[in-house]
Design a protein around this nucleic acid. Structure first.
Lengths: 231, 231
DNA sequence: ATCGTTAACTTGATGGCGTCAAGCTAAGAC
DNA sequence: GTCTTAGCTTGACGCCATCAAGTTAACGAT
């Protein structure tokens, strides 16, 4: 039945089992790639321990699954840190794209933590983490003076857009997405990020005239000229 | 055990049971408000039929749940139709907001169909429906000449933004959302929709100067003047 | 009027799941 | 060597999805 019986932990080292359970669950997730394989029984057997022993360290299955998925979440902080240097607006684009890539790299974890009603009461730490990073990268842009508005509201807009894109990728994998997903993410981040610069100035409708396009082109040229002066 | 035994359907009317099962499941969902209550056994008992009878009309539990959730999906078409008249840009805003409201009005159905990996092969009909509506409303804007770009790409951007916002609401209900959710949705739709008008013209970064804000203000004033000429 | 066919449904069972109550066992202080 | 208790196991319960085989009743044919 059980593969190899584990040696009992020494006194005071009971918490060691928690780590072993988490590692076993993580391995199980990596191998099967699906959340359904994370059964208490399978995890216990893989750890070399009886099934109810899992409950010594996790209140219920949900708590175990959540803990497993949270293990990868620190990576997000590192990713944002690595992409936050330099020009704030370039950083905004990099972070948005990196966020989407993070979601696609950890599909199960992202799904469990961000695409399901949070079981626990109060703000889910995973959501708080995401939002916090978003606010940070947006705030840097606001501080330049080129982006106006409440950083938190702007961050929510960016978060919505990039989460929406990533979660649609994960939930509808067989949708005929454009070949270049990176380009689509780039477009979305750009629109959500820089489009926010127009927040509060956008009319409720646009004039139904092609002249507008020319006007916007002018703006784009002027912006570009300032943004990337000739080397 | 069983509440009231159902009268057996007449020959040739076997498919009637399918409808009754769907109705029972729907009622169960409405009453409990959670997907977990949708067990084959509960649905069968409520229908007044034995458990395996459900399998005469649904391949497995997943198929039943999906069918139940799809029942509400036609409402989306009606909503888009009702909000599509008049000025295309005003319609874009109305449809985006209505889409988010639809998701919040049918949380379980939206979650099952749009926030989970699609079980079936190929494009999920629910996703196709959503995308189709988005393309329709965006296309109308593109045809005015004021919005440039590939309608499908633009629609994906809008879809991502509004789906992202709605799905975050559903998945993180205890997040400290701003009091006025409608306003946030409005902001997101506006940015995603009109921000798209700038697609391809937005530089990778913005000049780190407050002068930009004035320039954007000018644009906003000119746009507003054209968009809403004095009555 | 009744027989045979078969559509419509039931019975009973299998194996897996999360979870709990109670018991066992060995590590380590005395 | 004895006692305590942290660390873990045994065995069970109830629920679940699903299947194989059986039963019942509608209805065309005779």
């Amino acid at each position: 039945m059980t593969t190899t019986r584990r040696v009992r932990a020494r006194r005071g080292e009971g918490a060691r089992l928690r780590e072993e359970i988490l590692r076993a669950a993580e391995a199980l997730l990596d191998e099967t790639g699906t959340e359904e394989s994370l059964t208490i029984r399978a995890v216990a057997e893989r750890t070399g321990v009886s099934t109810p022993s899992v409950y010594l360290h996790f209140a219920d299955k949900e708590a175990l699954v959540e803990a497993v998925c949270l293990r990868v979440w620190d990576g997000l902080g590192r990713i944002f840190a690595e992409n936050s240097g330099g020009d704030p607006f370039l950083a905004l684009g990099r972070c948005g794209r990196a966020y989407a890539r993070f979601a696609l790299d950890h599909p199960v974890q992202y799904r469990v933590l961000m695409m399901r009603p949070s079981s626990s009461e109060g703000v889910h730490p995973a959501a708080a983490t995401c939002f916090g990073h978003m606010v940070g990268v947006v705030s840097a842009c606001v501080e330049t003076g080129a982006l106006r508005g409440d950083p938190e509201t702007l961050a929510l807009g960016l978060w919505s857009a990039v989460h929406g894109c990533a979660s649609l990728f994960l939930a509808q994998p067989s949708f005929p997405w454009p070949g270049d997903r990176e380009a689509l993410i780039d477009h979305i981040v750009r629109v959500a990020g820089f489009g926010s610069a127009l927040h509060g100035r956008l009319p409720r409708r646009l004039p139904p005239s092609a002249e507008l396009a020319g006007e916007l082109d002018d703006l784009g040229v002027r912006l570009a000229a300032r943004a990337e002066p000739p080397a």
